[in-house]
Amino acid sequence: MRITLVSDADLVNSNYRGYQPLMVLSRRGHDITFTRLGEPRYRASTLLQSDVVHIHRYTDPELLQIVAQLRDAGIGVVWDNDDDLTAVPRSNPNYRKFGGPANRARIQAALRRTVTAADVVTTPSELLAAQYRAAGADDVRLLENYLPPEFGRVKPAKHDGVTLVWLAGLEHQVDYQRLRLKETLVRLLDAHADLRVLSIGLGLGLPSDRYEHIRQVDFLELAKGMSAGDIGLAPLADIPWNQARSNIKLKEYAAAGLPWLASPVGPYLGLGEKQGGELVPDDAWHDVIDRLIVDVRRRRKLAKNAAKWAKGQSIEDHAHLWDSAFRDAAQRAKRRAL
């Protein structure tokens, strides 16, 4: 089957929602074309040679014109999104582009047009799946984010002391502020002389020589970059934007051999000790982290559970779900064209 991906390579999400699953399908014999940022996104001559076109996030008028051509030509369209672009908070770097009532109305209208034009809609979020069904999408599939094979080859790195790791994009500034985590982390660093804090992505501004900030890590190096940690942090403020997230951050920590602590919000609800971590109420972050820092036995037990969970969360083991979505979209398009 000939599948063409249309995505933005600058979005880390596009790895999980397109590039990595299609790399697995390519190794299984599918003919894959990657059309990503920096190239002509909508070269009709390329897209019209496909059996299926897989689109991550784009909803602009130019795209919808192409989708109409694809439908007329009997080519399947799979559209995917993994963020609630109607609920972007003010602290988000993309607020000017997506936030506010005027943008919300525009985005909602574009989403309705897009999901009703697609043969299959995919998302890792139950909340977004419900939104797309309500908007008129015929076939919406909940497909979680899964781990690339490179993450499964990482082994925990030996090190002294205890290291807290927070892998966080800039949009997590709202979580850092609302949950008062700077105050919490400063208190913990003061109380534990062997404690270190590492943040990847978001800078935390901690006044300590035992705090390290790494601005960016290549996607396939994420698990390796966290492998010298001991505890992964996944705090989320209880706001609409966070309700539509995926649970991939916990899987990333688990692949790196880290037990995790997360907020009982959105995608993390229902996860816990079996998956290698604990859910932490908003007012308990200091106490729960403090307890896990000193409880080596508990950390080891959770790390063992996390590693076991991560082994079952590989893209390769779940690529058949994407394959099914693409095949069904192609078959639906062919029936429509008859």
Score class of each variant (00 low, 15 high):
55 I>Q: 03
284 A>V: 01
160 D>S: 04
124 P>T: 03
10 D>A: 12
238 D>V: 01
52 V>H: 02
290 D>V: 05
202 L>T: 06
28 R>K: 08
314 S>D: 00
162 V>M: 12
329 A>R: 00
34 F>P: 05
197 V>W: 06
280 V>P: 01
84 D>N: 09
333 A>D: 08
174 V>L: 15
102 A>K: 06
98 F>C: 00
74 G>S: 08
51 D>M: 03
11 L>M: 08
215 R>G: 15
104 R>A: 15
314 S>W: 12
18 G>F: 11
224 K>H: 08
197 V>S: 01
119 D>G: 02
23 M>Y: 15
4 T>F: 05
23 M>N: 04
20 Q>H: 14
268 Y>D: 00
21 P>V: 13
278 E>Y: 14
106 R>M: 03
316 E>N: 05
100 G>P: 05
125 S>E: 04
89 P>A: 01
263 S>P: 02
249 K>A: 00
298 R>G: 08
237 A>R: 03
1 M>L: 14
283 D>S: 00
79 W>L: 07
111 L>P: 00
111 L>K: 10
195 L>Y: 13
306 A>C: 03
296 V>N: 13
302 L>E: 04
160 D>T: 08
282 D>I: 02
96 R>S: 11
3 I>A: 09
303 A>F: 05
21 P>N: 11
206 L>Q: 07
106 R>Y: 06
11 L>T: 05
26 S>Y: 06
53 V>Y: 06
153 R>T: 11
291 R>S: 13
71 R>K: 10
227 S>Y: 14
238 D>T: 02
182 K>E: 14
78 V>S: 02
241 W>A: 06
240 P>C: 11
177 Q>E: 15
84 D>A: 11
121 V>C: 09
218 D>I: 11
111 L>M: 10
41 R>M: 06
241 W>I: 10
236 L>R: 02
279 L>G: 14
233 L>F: 09
302 L>D: 07
316 E>C: 05
91 S>W: 15
259 P>Q: 03
2 R>A: 03
121 V>P: 10
180 R>K: 15
83 D>A: 15
86 T>H: 06
24 V>H: 08
267 P>S: 08
165 V>P: 00
287 D>K: 15
51 D>Y: 02
57 R>F: 10
337 A>F: 15
14 S>D: 04
118 A>N: 07
47 L>R: 01
303 A>M: 02
286 H>N: 02
50 S>D: 09
313 Q>Y: 09
2 R>F: 00
261 L>P: 00
252 E>H: 12
284 A>F: 08
45 S>R: 04
32 I>A: 00
232 G>W: 11
147 L>K: 08
107 I>S: 03
206 L>Y: 04
214 I>S: 13
86 T>E: 01
315 I>W: 06
332 R>K: 13
300 R>Y: 10
139 D>Y: 07
29 G>S: 03
172 H>N: 11
161 G>P: 03
113 R>P: 05
21 P>H: 09
264 P>C: 05
40 P>K: 04
12 V>N: 10
281 P>Y: 12
193 A>Q: 07
191 A>L: 13
154 V>A: 06
214 I>A: 12
133 R>Y: 14
158 K>M: 13
57 R>T: 04
261 L>K: 02
155 K>R: 08
89 P>S: 07
83 D>Q: 08
210 R>W: 15
216 Q>D: 09
245 R>F: 13
271 L>M: 07
240 P>Q: 14
162 V>I: 14
104 R>S: 09
146 Y>C: 02
282 D>M: 13
335 R>N: 11
4 T>Y: 04
240 P>K: 07
113 R>Y: 15
